[in-house]
């Protein structure tokens, strides 16, 4: 088994996650795209840990998971707060920082 294939899969998932962030308008789905990107990098880390014979890759992946979890909590809270006040979960509607 050529371990590079796992890296290809990771890259593919990452690109799909990036495209999701660009294309979707629902804030929650955009956030899911971000999570997909994070997970794809986790996969790459684990694969490299295996290639290099070093557990540090997995440790990094663990920390990524921790931080991502914290990020999900706060991010979703923000989305919900915005939804509560503006009754809209579309990222296009939050454009007050325009010129």
């Amino acid at each position: 088994m050529n371990l590079v294939h796992w890296l290809y899969l990771s890259v593919l998932l990452f690109s799909i996650g990036a495209a999701t962030v660009l294309v979707r308008r629902n804030a929650i789905i955009v956030f899911m795209g971000v999570e997909l990107m994070l997970n794809a990098t986790n996969l790459a880390f684990v694969t490299f840990a295996r290639i290099n014979g070093n557990v540090e890759g997995q440790v990094i992946a663990l920390f990524v998971m921790l931080v991502a979890a914290a990020e999900v909590v706060v991010g979703l809270a923000i989305i919900f707060t915005i939804f509560r006040t503006r009754r809209s979960a579309s990222v296009d509607d939050a454009n007050l920082l325009k010129y």
Partner: peptide, 17 residues
């Protein structure tokens, strides 16, 4: 140039990518 700042997150994300 300031018109580039559309306030739309997706545009920013696109330029980042």
């Amino acid at each position: 140039l300031r018109r580039v700042q559309s306030g739309l997150v997706r545009s920013y994300a696109a330029s980042m990518l």
